[in-house]
Simulated scan of single mutants.
Amino acid sequence: MNKVNFNTLYPIEEFKNTVSLKVLVEESDVKNVIVGDYSYYSDFDDPTKFLEKNVMYNFGMSGTQLKIGKFCALAHGVKFIMADANHSTKGVSTFPFAVFGKEWSDKLPIGEYPFKKYKDIEVGNDVWIGYGATIMPNVKIGDGAIIGSNSTVTSDVPDYAVMGGNPAKVIRYRYTKDEIHLLKGLKWWNWDRVYLDEAVEILVKGTVEDLLFYATKKGLIKTS
């Protein structure tokens, strides 16, 4: 039986509009973007330009990273605004004099600017980010979240929340608090491939209780 292969750049045979993000990143020179297994980016034009066109202002000055978990689906035009886009706001002017070099940079090098400190952008597991959405610096997106098309995410997204708007707000939650707690415990995205293959129908059409029953039957419940 032929198996889905995410260890190749184009995981859909004879289709060049979707790429395995992990493979794309590993084949690049970019070191501060980290992607988990099975996550992909689709683009109507050229998805291989993701690191140049969709990870914006990634100059490395802020020392921050973009971390994307497993089984994430990123639609055309999704953009991550890295912290290097920010200007210093401590003084009278926000103008980045040192960027233009020469006497302005000699006077105060860019490395000495009092920039605000930012955290990494983190995208959890099993996250779907819709067409044209923008993720701003300092944002953490929880597991199982959905980000609506053309949304601008400026604050953290809870696990299994559906967010939309500009700025994005919680529209609803996909599951109850108890169900979210169960899903966070199951961490199905970390299961071995054999169990994932078996559980596809449950993952697509089943309930949390169905998945819990399967995990229990297979001995996949982790006990502390």
Rank of each mutant, 00 (worst) to 15 (best):
V200R: 10
L196E: 10
E198N: 09
K205I: 00
Y173G: 00
K107M: 12
L212Y: 15
F100R: 10
A161K: 02
T134R: 08
A98F: 03
A75M: 12
Y118S: 11
V157D: 00
E122K: 15
P158W: 06
Y173N: 06
L212H: 14
L211Q: 14
T154D: 07
D197I: 06
S155W: 06
A73I: 04
D178H: 05
D156P: 03
K119W: 04
V162I: 13
V200H: 03
A145D: 03
I202G: 13
D210C: 09
D210M: 12
W128D: 10
I171F: 12
S155A: 13
S105T: 04
G130L: 02
W188Q: 07
T176V: 01
E201M: 09
K169T: 15
Y173R: 13
F213G: 14
L186F: 10
G132T: 09
C72I: 09
F95W: 15
I129R: 09
G165H: 01
P96T: 01
K119Y: 01
P167H: 05
V139D: 00
T89N: 09
L212P: 00
K117R: 07
G206K: 04
D156R: 07
A145N: 02
R174V: 06
G165I: 00
L203Y: 09
K119R: 15
E179L: 08
Y173H: 13
G142P: 05
L203G: 06
V92F: 14
T176Q: 00
N166L: 01
I146R: 05
D126K: 13
A98R: 05
E201H: 14
D192F: 02
A168F: 00
N166Q: 12
W188Y: 12
Y118M: 06
I171H: 09
F100V: 02
K116C: 08
E198D: 11
R193S: 09
G124F: 07
I135W: 11
S105I: 02
